[in-house]
Design a protein around this nucleic acid. Sequence first.
DNA 1: TTGTAGGCGTTATCAT
DNA 2: ATGATAACGCCTACAA
Lengths: 327, 327
Amino acid sequence: MTTIRDVARHAGVSPATVSRVVNGMPGYSSATRDRVTQAVAELGYEPDTLARGLKTMQSTMIGVLAPVVSDALASQVMSGVERAARELGYSVMLGRTGPGSEFAPGYLHTLRTYRAAGVVLISAAITADMRRVAGPKMPLISVAIRDGKQFPSLAIDDERAAYDATRHLLGLGHERIGLLAGDATSLLVNAPRERGYLRAMTEAGATPLLERGNSLYDSAPPALGRLLERDPALTAVFALSDEMGAAVVNELQRLGRRVPDDVSVLGFDDTRTAQHVHPALSTVAQPLERMGEVAVHHLLDAGNGGARILPHRLIERGSTGPARRTP
Amino acid sequence: MTTIRDVARHAGVSPATVSRVVNGMPGYSSATRDRVTQAVAELGYEPDTLARGLKTMQSTMIGVLAPVVSDALASQVMSGVERAARELGYSVMLGRTGPGSEFAPGYLHTLRTYRAAGVVLISAAITADMRRVAGPKMPLISVAIRDGKQFPSLAIDDERAAYDATRHLLGLGHERIGLLAGDATSLLVNAPRERGYLRAMTEAGATPLLERGNSLYDSAPPALGRLLERDPALTAVFALSDEMGAAVVNELQRLGRRVPDDVSVLGFDDTRTAQHVHPALSTVAQPLERMGEVAVHHLLDAGNGGARILPHRLIERGSTGPARRTP
DNA sequence: TTGTAGGCGTTATCAT
DNA sequence: ATGATAACGCCTACAA
């Protein structure tokens, strides 16, 4: 292994000078800079991250924690985090919080012993306990979830997004719009979306109709069944996740209903799943990759508390269309 | 921050003793062990990973690198890696190799400066250059790709898996089976699968028919078009990725063909995508999560070179069935 | 502009 | 069984 002393010897200077050159600190002639640079190249020297971190009391590590590592939404945010981190010279450490954030403290602890520069939590709210184990030096930010004003967070305005989306369906002439919501455990994202839907429906004088799944694919067909039982003449279903939306598209067709001619379907999130059904799922897009990138920047800018809002966007694919005329 | 000296003072012993207790080395009475253990608990002491790594010249970090972080297949392997690593007390660092592995050396370099305990490469072959920048201490293993015998790898037997799958379709009475292959850049996985298909077809006296996509969803419809043009009486399509398989299921139905009554469709990998279409995609399953776990174990067992094979498995869902009788 | 020296928190060697 | 001490590789006052 090449150390800073090797380079120093090779270039005929002191370790301190090498350090200065490598870190771009002032204090050397351009001649020595060249000699050092060359020595570095020749020996293939790279500063040891551990030693550097130990000395500076800070590492260039960023943690990224998600409830489930293989989740489609989380993957996209992680991708953004990774890209931004790398661009800024940081590395990212991956962890899993578990569905109820139960593993988060353990990972935060580890991250702390690495003197991580910060942590982004995906789809998981920051708790006082997490804040405590993270210690005073390590900033936390949660993404894709609205987390009050107490801790930093980065998300779309879920209430408004659901409101806009419902208005869009109303604008297409739909009145009997069923909402397929997620379960209560992900309350922080579901509650505002439900409110948005409710508000739009009420304003339009339409009758709200709500059933719950658990945001995953398999939970949607039974919930759709309950929705159709309560109103067989439904002309639109608004699912609060793309997986549920995709399942609804498939299930409706299995039941002999055409999408979107008989029933329109709208999803939420704009994960890749939305494009894996036919007709492709119209959906409320969250800028997931971008959220990951922005989160990293906020983290490193000592992004202080408060909730930041990113813009949502409605993407029309093939699963939505004008309401079927009631004869 | 609590250091080992704080604990030592608190327990009335020397730092060396604390270290011994914490690391389970011999050399202390049970009385002092208890005092130290209690002091550790009271002060919430956790050894600093950086300092420890610096001293021991080894860190408990494992790298996991994938061509694209948000890829479904890679996500599942990563999930397995993360789980196994955590269980063994290791942390995982995430990186992106890029489609042609072009970024791999950079990440390997970083990992080396972290003195990582090893690196698992997903869907990326190890090259001599990578091996070089990884240095002599850091083991590498590639997963979900067959990598000759030169470097460690962990994958299914792609040739055999495709052979078995094709035989399965033949067994259902299909003779006109089109193969939807991936592009040439992922040659290491595609070539053997193509060979397996070809061998099964030839053995059965059937006529092979092959078109290429790029493994992603959007590439499948046009390729399917070409397949149908060359043989409109096709009764089965074997797609070498689930995304392409899902697209084929959707596209066939759009074209008015029933799945599986008119045409059977078989996918490959068993990612979540396979379950996001209707009928759900039958597919050749790779044990992705398991591969991630096993990779970690091999890495830490100083897993020497050579290709390790994990078993594949055919999963029948709704997209395959007996061949349509030719009247 | 450049070099010397001390210490970050830990483990390992050598005394006691 | 326990403690003092020296490194691991780096950065950064402080001196020169």
